[in-house]
């Protein structure tokens, strides 16, 4: 019997939760705010869905309701992507300081 592709996606999902668990515990507490802004930025990868929505019309059928939703979603995701990564960058620049990392 063939395995449903859903099972593969579920496996990726579960394993990623564990990766996230261990990676996030190793984040130094002083960087928790940048962690939030960067996770916010990467969750805007939802833009891949927005892109599909933006181009979902059939040839010659003009701009559909789904397309409009897609464009709005692209705008929202873009605010997040640019805003999220840039503000993270801005914060991390401020941590550019002398010596080695503090003893955790």
């Amino acid at each position: 019997m063939e395995i449903d592709p859903f099972i593969f996606r579920l496996s990726i999902f579960i394993l990623s939760i564990f990766i996230g668990y261990f990676v996030v515990w190793s984040v130094t507490p002083s960087l928790h705010t940048p962690l939030m802004s960067v996770t916010n930025a990467i969750s805007s990868v939802i833009i891949v869905g927005a892109i599909i929505a933006s181009f979902s019309s059939l040839e010659g059928s003009g701009i559909s309701f789904s397309n409009i939703l897609g464009f709005v979603a692209v705008t929202l995701a873009a605010i997040n992507i640019f805003g999220g990564f840039l503000v993270t960058q801005r914060m991390l620049q401020m941590y550019k300081k002398k010596e080695k990392k503090k003893n955790k």
Partner: peptide, 21 residues
């Protein structure tokens, strides 16, 4: 949404962000 779209990048990211939060 990642599961709906069958998109690995979204599934992985969602799991990372979800567990981080």
């Amino acid at each position: 949404i990642g599961f709906t779209l069958e998109n690995t990048a979204l599934i992985i990211t969602g799991a990372l962000v979800g567990s981080s939060g």
